[in-house]
Amino acid sequence: MRSALVRAVRRTAEGVRWYVRELTGESAYDRYVEHLRAHDPDAPVPSRREFERMRTDRQDADPRQGFRCC
């Protein structure tokens, strides 16, 4: 009984973590790195900071890319 409860709590926590990462866009960097390595393994991988700067610049250049309030 207790192990089932622990598994349920863990599964719920993992689901909440996934949802928050998707909602905040934090997982975008992980997906970008995965995509970059799959399509061009020799390409340099930008740091998270560089990635966020590129993403912000892209959104500023084309507001249809994503919603920005500030």
Rank of each mutant, 00 (worst) to 15 (best):
Tyr19Gln: 10
Leu5Asn: 13
Val6Thr: 13
Tyr19Ile: 07
Met54Tyr: 07
Val45Met: 06
Glu50Pro: 04
Val33Pro: 05
Glu52Arg: 13
Ser3Phe: 04
Asp42Gly: 03
Ala13Trp: 10
Arg17Gly: 12
Ala28Met: 03
Thr56Leu: 15
Cys70Glu: 14
Arg31Leu: 09
Tyr19Gly: 07
Tyr29Trp: 10
Thr12Ser: 09
Arg58Ile: 04
Thr12Met: 11
Ala61Tyr: 00
Arg55Cys: 06
Thr12Phe: 14
Arg2Phe: 07
Arg17Lys: 15
Arg64Ser: 11
Asp57Asn: 08
Arg64Gln: 15
Arg55Lys: 09
Arg49Leu: 09
Met54Ile: 00
Ala38Glu: 09
Val6Ala: 14
Ala13Gln: 08
Ala28Gly: 10
Tyr29Glu: 01
Asp30Tyr: 02
Arg21Ser: 13
Arg21Gln: 08
Glu50Ile: 10
Arg10Pro: 00
Glu50Gly: 10
Arg48Met: 09
Val33Cys: 05
Arg58Ala: 15
Glu14Cys: 01
Val45Trp: 02
Asp40Ala: 06
Gln65Tyr: 15
Leu5Pro: 01
Leu23Thr: 05
Trp18Gln: 12
Gln65Phe: 11
Arg58Val: 09
Glu14Gly: 03
Val20Gly: 09
Gly66Cys: 02
Arg68Met: 02
Trp18Ser: 14
Ala43Trp: 09
Thr56Asn: 10
Asp57Pro: 02
Asp62Phe: 09
Thr12Gln: 13
Arg2His: 04
Val6Leu: 06
Arg37Ala: 14
Asp30Arg: 13
Thr56Phe: 13
Gly25Pro: 03
Cys69Met: 14
Ala13Leu: 02
Val16Leu: 08
Glu34Ile: 02
Gln65Ser: 06
Val9Glu: 08
Ala43Ser: 08
Leu23Trp: 10
Ala28Pro: 06
Asp40Pro: 08
Arg68Asp: 05
Val16Ala: 11
Ala61Cys: 05
Asp40Leu: 03
Tyr29Gln: 02
Glu34Asp: 10
Thr56Asp: 15
Ala13Asn: 15
